[in-house]
Design a protein around this nucleic acid. Sequence first.
RNA 1: GCGCCUGUAGCUCAGGGGACAGAGCAACGGCCUUCUAAGCCGUGGGUCAGGGGUUCGAAUCCCUUCAGGCGCGCCA
Length: 650
Amino acid sequence: MEAIRQEIARTVRRILLERFGEAPERVAVEYPPQPGMGDLASPVAFEMARRLRRAPRDIARELAAAFPPLPGVAGVASGGAGYLNVSLDRAAAARALAREVASPAPPSDGEKIIVEHTNINPNKAAHIGHLRNAVLGDTLARCLRFSGRRVEVQNYIDDTGVQVADLVIGFRDILRGGVEEAKAVGDRFDQFCWDLYARVTEMYTAFPEKLALRPPVLKALEEGHGEIAALGAYLTRRIVNCHLDTMARIGVRYDLLPWERDVLAFRFWETTFALLKERRAITLVAEGERQGCWVMALEGRRFADLKEGEKILVRSDGTVTYVGKDIAYQMWKFGLLPADFRYEPFRDEPDGHRVWTTTRRPGASPRPAFGGGARVYNVIDVRQAYLQAIVVEGLRSLGHREQAERSTHFSYEMVALTPKSAETLGLPLNEEDRGRPYLEMSGRRGLGIKADDLLDALEKEALREVTWRAPDLDPREAAALGRDIAVGALRYLMIKYTRNKVLAFDFDEALSFEGESGPYLQYAVVRARGIFEKMAAAGGPDEAEAARLARAAEFNLPAGEGAEEHWALLMQIARFRETVAQALETLELSQIAKYAFALAQKFNSFYHKYPVMKEPDARWKTARVVLTHLFLAQMRHAFALMGIPVPARM
RNA sequence: GCGCCUGUAGCUCAGGGGACAGAGCAACGGCCUUCUAAGCCGUGGGUCAGGGGUUCGAAUCCCUUCAGGCGCGCCA
C-alpha cells in the first residue's frame, strides 16, 4: 500500500510541475473517510488553489484528467470541494497483499541497534510500572527486528546504588543476617525483599541517624569485595533471576545484563573520567558547598534550572553518581571506549534463548559480540528525561555529536494507581487523595501492585472464564489458555495508551476481557482460525489452499454495498506495514495496538454478517476465504510484534 | 520560580492542518435451531478547558489565561 501511495504522490507532483510549473515538496495522499470517495485521496488542490488563484475543484478536475494510466490504479476522479480521489485495481491489490503477508521476515543485518529496557533496581519485586517499561521496550525491539534491523536488548542492573545498599542494610541491621539467612528465604524472594525494603525506609523515618549506615555500604558495594559486597552480589543476582522469571511470563527476553559494578570494575568510568578531564568538559570545584566535587557545566534553556548550572558527576568522597556511570555506559554502547567487559552465560530460558551477563570472571568463549551499536534507544520513564538529557550532553561534550544525535530517550509516562485501586490494596487515603486523578506508586514505601500479583490475578480471571465456557476441558490445557489470555490482556493494556499519558491503573479495567482488550483481538483471531478448521474438516479449503487462492485473487464481486464492505476489510488489512513504519518513526507503539483493534472490529463485523463456509456463490465464498486468510495472516504478524499469544481456542 | 507533559462524550482514551469529531466502558433497546454471544446491531450523550490570532480550511499551528501532573539532589 505504501508503494502505491508514494507512486501516486510522485505522479501528482509531476503533473503539477508539468502543467502549472510548481508543486508542494510533499504531496499528501491519505485515506478518505467514506466509501464512494475512492480508496486514496489527495487534498493537494486546496493547497495549490491560492498559489494558482484558481478554484480547487477545477485544479482537481484537471489533475484527474491528466492522470496517466498507472499499474494498480483503476481510476481517478475529482470529488468533494476539490479532492483528488483515486480508486485502486482491487484484484491487483489483493494479490499484492497476499504476497506481502506470506513474505518471510527480512534478515536482520546492517548496523546494530541497542535497546535498553526494564532496568529494575535489583532490590525488590517488579511492579506494574516496570511492566509498562518492559512491554514497550520488548515491543520496540520486536518492531525493529520486523523491519530488518539487528537488535541487541540490554537490561542494565544498577547494583551499586542506594536502593541495593538499603536492602543490604535491611538484611544486616534489621534481620541481623547475611548470605546464609538470605538463602533460607523461600519462594518469591523478590516479594520478601519488597517488604524488607519498605521496613528500611520506615527505620530511616523513625531513626534518621540510621542514614549514617548508608555511605559505607555504598562504598563497599562499589569497591566490590568483602562481606557487604558478597551479600549484595547474592541478593541482586537472586532478585534479577526473579525479574527474569516475571518477564518470561509475558514473553520478554534479554540478550545481555550489564552490571553497574562491572562498569566500575572494567574502568569504563575511569576511562570516561579521564576523557572528560582531558576535554575540560568537567571541573573540580575548589571551594564552597561543593568543594571537592567534579561537575559538568550545562548550558541552554533545558538546564536553566540546574543548581549552579552544573551537574555533579563525582561526589566529594570520590564515588561516582549514577549519571557519571551512565555516561560511561552510553559510551560503551556506541563502542567509543577502548575497553570491553567480559561475558558469560547468565541463564537459558525454557525456549532456548540464552541470556548473557557481564562478569569479572575470565569470561566464556565463543560468545556473541556485545555493544558497539550504531543507534541506542533507552526506554526509561519521563521522570528521568533530565538525566537522559545530561547523558547525551556528556557524549556531545566529548565530541561525539553523531552518537549524541543517535541516542534516543524512549520516554513514557509512569503507571499510577486510581484512588479506587489504592484502596483495594488497603492503603489509607485522605479526602485529598480520593479527589486526585491518580496516586503515584512508591517502591520505597512498598506502595504498588507487584507484577506477579497482577499476572496471577489475570490468569485466575482468565481461567475462570475458560472453565465457565468449557467445563470439560483438560485442566492443563485450560491453564495454558488462561496464561495466553492473561498475557494478551496485559500486553495489550500496556501498549494501547499513548506513551505520554499517565496510565492510571484500574483493576476492573485490567481484568475486563471485553471491548478494547487483548482477549477481544485474540477472540477474533481464534474465530478466523475456527473457520479454517471447520472448512478443512469438511473437505473445503484449508489455510494453505486459501493462501494459494489469495495469490490468484480476482476480487470481481457484484457491485454494491456488500462488495464495498469486503473491500474495506481488505484495505484495513493492507495498512499494517505502514502502521508499523509510522509507529517506529514516531515511537508511538499504541498505533499498532489501535490498528489491530480496529482491524479485529472490522473482522468481527464481517464475520457476523457474511458466512464463509456456507456461502453458496463461489465468487463470494472465494473472496471471503481469501479475506479470512489475509486477516489471519496479518493479525499473526501484529500479534508477534505486540507479543500477544494466539490461544488454541477460546 | 524555571522546564517538560496533559486538558476531547458521565468515565477511560484515539484523532495532532483537510471531507459530517471517533472508540471502549457505563446507560438503554434488540440479536444465540445459522462458521464460537470474550461477539454483533441500534439509541442517547460534545462550548474538543477559556480567550485571541494565523489559514481557503483549526480539536490539530502560534500567543495568552486557567486547571492538573511531573521534573529541577553529593538518590536513581
